[in-house]
Amino acid sequence: MSLAVAMKAVFAREITLFARRKSDWANPLMFFLIVCSLFPFAVGSESEKLKLIGIGAVFVGALLAAMLALPRLFDEDAKDGSLEHLLTSPEPLAALILARVAAISLAIALPLALATPVFSLFYALPTDVALMLALSVLLAVPTLILVGAIASALLVSARGGAILTAVLVLPLTIPTLIFGAGAALKVLFGESPAAEIALQTAYFLFALALCPVAAAAALRISTD
């Protein structure tokens, strides 16, 4: 079972790195906090108004914060040469990328999801809505990182990578944005969010099945 061993090794390495360099997951969190606090300045402080935009603002803030973690996927490895290890491994590249995405998702999505109910307080969102929003973020951020793996694998060696990654990734995260925010809205209006959660999970599973393979192909193209 050398495949499982290799995947575990990749996963463990990423987690160790995150434990050592706390800014890697703390910075997106800070960014998330600041974005969430900006909207009330623009919209005004009426709690009714804030409630309506709150779900969207928090959700988009979490997605943008997760974008910051994408360079962590391949860029730094490309610089220090450790990307070679991944590429020359006898194990299927897609599986190793999946292990790495899993580690990064854990280190990024979990803090963002935990912070979501707290930051929802800015917008006077009821507790059940805030918890639903946290679940949506927990599904949406890994989806974004999966899609982002394709883009950042392609752009490892390209000019202007960061902005281009956003241009490529964000349109493809629209379905998860629609379903995630929709689920929280349903809860806000006291309705069942089951359909939205199902669709959001479906999009995540879809990305989980296809993105690692596409990202592996992308990495072969760009490092070729």
């Binding site: 392609l154 000019r159 202007g160 241009v167 349109p171 992308a218």
Partner: peptide, 28 residues
């Protein structure tokens, strides 16, 4: 947006062949 992404990606590579295959992948 997808068109814009494709065009920008194709233009981002100095190596034309790499740009070809990278943008083809994103088109798919």
């Amino acid at each position: 947006f997808l068109y814009i992404g494709y065009i920008a990606l194709a233009a981002a590579f100095d190596d034309k062949k790499k740009g070809d295959r990278a943008s083809a992948l994103i088109a798919l």
